[in-house]
């Protein structure tokens, strides 16, 4: 998979952390639903779980690009990812869906409307994620803000078992400061914008918790094949 790409610098804002996060943004992933399967809930859920598993691999690679993440103790790196993996996955879906009307863009080749979500047995989750989409759309969420928020969500995972809390706090402060710097330069007339973005994180956390619960129950049901990394992270919750 090719990784590196450059984003056009849309602003004259030179924030190193934000630029670095833009560079680290993973390539898009395609869902590639299995054409041999009948169009039912199992196919939809199998497609979503497979897509999530592949995105997780990329997200772990992405996390390593966050300034300071790789210097954390390995145990703490694991705990942050175990705490925030679903928030990171959802935020990516939300950002991809900003231009879609009441539909979730899980991938370019996998877009789900409310009727399809009902068929998949995920109507509440679909509605919850759309609430986030509407919130960010109303704010005009920018790519730079999206990548920074994603990093903040990871650094803000609130694991109870962090070994070196000071180092994690430093990572959190670094990305928080990057967001504040970016907003000061990009939206000088809106001093509350960084705060308002951070205040969307509770809804993201709440929606991610709902998603993890849904997939835990799907797992218990045992009808949908799930890859190992996805299972590992589901178990971590």
């Amino acid at each position: 998979l090719p990784h590196k790409k450059t984003y056009p610098c849309r602003t004259n804002v030179e924030n190193k952390v934000v630029s670095h996060l833009l560079e680290a943004e993973p390539e898009k992933v395609y869902a590639m639903p299995d054409p041999a399967l009948p169009d039912d809930d199992i196919k939809a859920l199998t497609t979503l779980c497979d897509l999530a598993d592949r995105e997780l691999v990329l997200n772990i690679g992405w996390a390593k690009h966050l300034p300071g993440f790789s210097s954390l103790r390995l145990a703490d790196q694991m705990r942050l990812l175990q705490g925030a993996w679903m928030e990171v996955l959802l935020l990516r879906v939300v950002f991809r869906s900003l231009g879609a009307q009441d539909r979730l863009v899980f991938a370019e080749d996998y877009v789900m409307d409310a009727a399809q979500a009902r068929l998949a047995g995920l109507p509440d989750l679909h509605a919850g994620v759309l609430q986030l989409v509407r919130k960010y759309r109303a704010m005009g969420l920018e790519m730079e803000e999206f990548v920074t928020l994603k990093a903040i969500a990871l650094a803000n995972a609130d694991s109870m078992h962090i070994e070196d809390a000071e180092a994690v706090q430093k990572l959190q402060d670094c990305v928080h400061e990057a967001l504040q710097d970016y907003e000061r330069a990009r939206h000088p007339g809106d001093p509350r914008r960084a705060g308002r973005l951070i205040m969307t994180l509770p809804l993201l956390r709440q929606t991610a918790t709902m998603a993890v619960r849904s997939f835990c129950s799907i797992r218990q049901d045992g009808r949908v094949p799930m890859h190992k990394l996805f299972l590992e992270l589901l178990e971590a919750n």
Binding site: L1, P2, H3, A24, P26, E27, V57, L58, I60, G61, W62, K64, H65, L74, A75, Q77, M78, L81, Q82, K228, L229, E232, L233, E235, A236
Partner: peptide, 20 residues
Amino acid sequence: KEKHKILHRLLQNSTSPVDL
């Protein structure tokens, strides 16, 4: 760690997303 061996392995890999 044993329980989360894939996550552990992916984090230990020195290179990033390309390293699938």
